[in-house]
Design a protein around this nucleic acid. Structure first.
Length: 98
DNA sequence: TTTGTGACCTGGA
DNA sequence: ATCCAGGCCACAA
């Protein structure tokens, strides 16, 4: 289990992603000093209901399949460049500032 | 204890 | 562009 600090750190980072931008599980893991992107995913799954969870996508810009539909709609709604079911990471990827 | 399964990522073919 | 293998780590059975 990730430590409470790690969890809070990731939650803070997600909160810091501005509207119209996105981040990735890998970026979160790096910024929060987690040992693996899977931990970011674990945290998002269990403790993200009160966060802008839709701003977290995979490294290739595709959202996790089970939430893809809703997520893409939310992202489009806030002006994120979505083309053919994937986010244009080159322009939408947020810079995570510790 | 071991094994399989995931909101994952990278590098090589 | 796509596919696969290997690494990763927490958890449930």
């Amino acid at each position: 289990m990730p430590t409470d600090e790690q969890i809070e750190r990731v939650r803070e980072l997600v909160r810091s992603v501005p509207e119209g931008a996105v981040t990735t599980y890998g970026d979160l893991a790096e910024a929060a000093h987690l040992p693996s992107p899977r931990i970011s995913a674990w945290i998002m799954k269990h403790d993200s209901s009160d966060l802008p969870w839709h701003r977290v996508v995979r490294a290739d810009g595709t959202p996790a399949p089970h939430i893809a539909a809703k997520q893409l709609e939310l992202l489009r709604h806030e002006g994120v460049p979505v083309r053919d079911g994937r986010v244009d990471m080159k322009s939408a990827r947020a810079t995570l500032t510790p």
